[in-house]
């Protein structure tokens, strides 16, 4: 178990180093930043001085090491566009994205698992068929289209919900939250649905097919033959057995909810990290892009690690097999 954990941690570090190299590579790919920073009226001495100050005269490997060291301390440099430290800008934007992602994620999990179980248990009812058909829409429609459709129906036609922004936010210890105001909560509804719909339908379809598979197993038959209640059979005996593959997919999907909130944030002008990233791309704001890339990779790596640990919590068989391996 411990050996497994250590091995996974080492793998995670390798992944992060590679992503770091890509982020770092972006700076060099764009060309010599000195040209952009100094403008037309510059002397050779200015250039040399700035190169020395930025450390650009040193070897690539040394520069990479410095970049990594700074990144590990949360220092991603200064935004070209805003002239402020990238870490501050991201910290400012993170709550918006994280709150949106949390609401979408919880929604996707609760409805995805719930509907998946229901459509598996009552697989011949018309309601299940209807849910399955509608879920095809969620799987196949692109996110931006769903967002625009929702805005059209609920904001433009019905005028029930706001079409953009976070509403009013309250600062709680440096964290700006939209959970505490009515307009903040209302503003969350459409983006959260847009962001979570694909994940929800995906989770639902996986839970359903896994559940159908598990319900055919001998131990479910045996549980029935022992006269256990349907509720216990479905939720205690069957659901738990569907969770290992479900967690794998769900974990990755939770990562993508944050990573790919870019589209939803753009559609709803949601002031989060995704929107920050899109704006950074438009202005070639490399430090922001690099920081975003690193942040997302850290996120994915940690989620993968958590997923692996969850396997152990759920399936006792792995505790032995993995420990042996």
């Amino acid at each position: 178990m411990l050996a497994f954990l250590i091995r996974r941690l080492i793998q995670s570090v390798v992944v992060l180093l590679v992503v770091g190299a890509v982020s770092f590579g972006m700076f060099r790919f764009i060309g010599d930043p000195v040209n952009n920073m100094l403008g037309q009226e510059r002397t050779q001495a200015d250039i040399a001085e700035l190169r020395d100050r930025l450390g650009l005269d040193r070897s690539v490997l040394v520069q990479y090491a410095v970049f990594l060291r700074n990144a590990a301390q949360g220092d991603f440099g200064v935004s070209y566009r805003q002239g402020r430290p990238v870490a501050d800008i991201i910290a400012e934007r993170a709550p918006a994205t994280l709150e949106l992602a949390a609401v979408s994620g919880v929604m996707a999990l609760v409805f995805g698992i719930g509907l998946g179980v229901i459509t598996a248990i009552k697989r011949n009812s018309w309601a299940s068929s209807a849910i399955m058909t509608i879920s095809l829409v969620g799987v196949s429609l692109p996110t931006f289209l769903i967002g625009i459709l929702l805005i059209y129906v609920f904001s433009v036609q019905l005028e029930w919900l706001p079409s953009f922004g976070r509403g009013e936010t309250v600062l709680v210890g440096g964290w700006s939250t939209g959970f505490l105001t009515q307009s903040g909560l209302v503003a969350l509804i459409l983006p959260a649905i847009t962001l979570g719909l694909y994940q929800m339908t995906l989770i639902m379809r996986i839970v359903r097919s896994e559940m159908l598979e598990v319900l055919r197993q001998d131990y479910i038959r045996f549980a029935r033959a022992r006269g256990l209640r349907e509720r216990s059979i479905n939720f205690r005996h069957a659901l738990k057995n569907t969770l290992v593959p479900v967690i794998t997919v769900t974990g990755l999907q939770m990562g993508s909810i944050i990573a790919f909130s870019i589209i939803t944030e753009t559609v709803f002008q949601w002031p989060g990290m995704g929107l920050l990233f899109i704006n950074a791309v438009q202005f070639v704001d490399i430090p922001v892009m690099a920081a975003y890339l690193m942040l997302i990779s850290v996120l994915f790596v940690s989620i993968n690690l958590v997923v692996d640990l969850l396997y152990f919590a759920i399936d006792p068989r792995l505790r032995i097999e993995r420990a042996k391996a």
Binding site: D218, Y219, F222, A225, R226, G227, R236, K240
Partner: peptide
């Protein structure tokens, strides 16, 4: 019928490797 199963009729299945729930 459910109340009778297990209480009045017990059933033993063929394959012990698959008739026990692996996670409980």
């Amino acid at each position: 019928l459910r109340r009778i199963r297990g209480r009045q009729i017990g059933m033993v299945f063929q394959d012990p490797l698959t008739s026990l729930n692996p996670l409980l």
